[in-house]
Simulated assay, not measured.
Amino acid sequence: MNSSYRADSSAPSAAHCPDAVLVPYGWDNAWRTAFAPYAAAGLAPGRIVRVDRGRCDLVVAGEAGGPDAAGGVRTVHASTSLVTTGDPLDIMCTGDWAAVDLEQGYVRALLPRRTAFVRSTSSKRSEGQVLAANVDHAIIAISLAVELDLGRVERFLALAWESGATPLVVLTKADLVDEPAVLSDLISDTEATAPEVQVLAVSAATGDGLDILAASLADGTAVLLGQSGAGKSTLANALVGQDVQEVQAIRDMDGKGRHTTTTRNLLALPWGGVLIDTPGLRGVGLWDAESGVARAFAEIDALAAECKFHDCAHEAEPDCAVLAALEDGTLQHRRLDSYRKLLRENQRLAARTDARLRAEQRRDWKQRQALGRHMLERKRGPVRKP
């Protein structure tokens, strides 16, 4: 794609810098500084809004008065072949900032990511998949048209905290809950499951709660996550102010949705900032999310710091603050069970991807086996020879 645009390598003030029109898409002075070497090479900055089969769409600064530019920004189509990598975590994705050769139509390089929302794939190769890059807010959409799944909320929260983004739980389709008291209880249950996280009940059909959500996303980049049928595309249309995403009805038999959105798309919001809509996620596997799990279960992490032993497993140890909280009712059994489940899952994945850790776990397992045999022999007494 031909263009005479060239980024100004001297990085002047935003008032007369061509890339200043990218500010609503998240461009700032830190990105401009990181991009400086590429600007000197005659490349243009662009943010990836969609990736599809070796090609991607990017928003770039448009030529002044150009017929294809809207508000000084235009969308270009470029090949990704020059930055193809074998590492799935390095594959470009929606939200990445890139150095683009507008004349040749190629993405030449990606700028280092500030944040990345990563999940494990369903394959047996134990690979991670980046769903969105350079995200400030992670919107976790949970439908109230079906039974509230608090375990799924906790799983999404662990990944969101690990990504570096700030999570926000949105209970969609609130208009389908007839009783205000029931809706209040659902919100309270979710808030108890999501410490330190804002929880909003919204309805794209009636508009309830959308103004609060819009104000929470007034700047930066937000990614919209959830299962098929959670109402993500409807919510995206409501936030953008027009039908930019196709919407399909959920199945009556089980309330599950169809995959309406098939690619991850970056959408400009009318008040500034951008929203990345994602396809419905059937599986949300953890990926190197130990600190994210700790943040998602902040109250358990705080209790664990008060245990007598620093490596307390919270099972039968004396002076365990976590077990004491279970006994006095300040901590729910469901919450601790979910915490243990996610930690075990994360450790299993780490063991599959880290040969050293696998060897350590195998050694510990053998030591426990030997100790078990020893204790059994002591209990039974020495074996007498005939």
Rank of each mutant, 00 (worst) to 15 (best):
P12K: 01
P45V: 05
R348Q: 13
A34T: 09
L331E: 11
A296S: 06
K256C: 01
T84K: 14
G241P: 08
A249I: 04
A304D: 14
D211G: 10
G151A: 02
D311Y: 02
D337Y: 05
V100F: 01
L168A: 05
R340P: 11
I212P: 09
G257Q: 02
D185W: 09
L281N: 04
G26I: 05
N2A: 13
L342V: 13
C312F: 04
A158Q: 06
S10M: 09
G62K: 08
T278V: 13
E246Y: 13
P270M: 07
D68N: 09
R358H: 15
D185I: 11
R155P: 08
G220A: 00
E360D: 05
V107G: 03
S188C: 10
G128H: 12
C17R: 14
G220N: 01
K379E: 00
L342P: 11
S184N: 08
A249T: 06
V153D: 08
V100T: 02
A324Y: 10
R50A: 07
V197P: 05
L148S: 06
E306V: 08
L326M: 04
P45L: 01
P386W: 01
G241C: 08
T221R: 02
A289Q: 12
L349M: 14
A316G: 03
R114W: 01
N237M: 10
G105W: 03
S3F: 13
D19M: 13
A304P: 12
A321N: 03
L159C: 00
G229A: 12
K385V: 13
V383L: 04
G151K: 01
L131A: 11
C17W: 12
V293H: 08
R258Y: 15
P67N: 07
S13K: 12
V247S: 01
Q332T: 12
N134R: 06
D254W: 00
G207P: 11
A69E: 00
A222V: 13
R282P: 12
Q245R: 15
E317Y: 06
A11R: 15
V100G: 02
L286E: 05
W97M: 11
A61D: 03
G280P: 05
V182F: 08
I91H: 03
A165H: 00
S216F: 00
R251V: 05
D87P: 10
G46M: 00
L303F: 14
G46P: 01
D57G: 00
V83T: 06
G272T: 02
Q242V: 12
V293P: 09
V51E: 04
L176N: 06
D52A: 13
T221N: 03
D90S: 14
S228Y: 09
H77S: 15
P88N: 14
S228D: 07
A325N: 03
K366L: 09
A296L: 05
T260M: 01
A34G: 09
R362S: 15
E290S: 15
L58Y: 10
A324H: 14
K308Q: 10
A313Y: 06
L111W: 04
H137P: 01
A313G: 07
A98I: 11
G66S: 09
L281V: 05
R368P: 09
D8M: 03
G128P: 11
G220W: 02
A20I: 08
E299N: 07
L286A: 06
M375S: 14
A313F: 07
P45K: 03
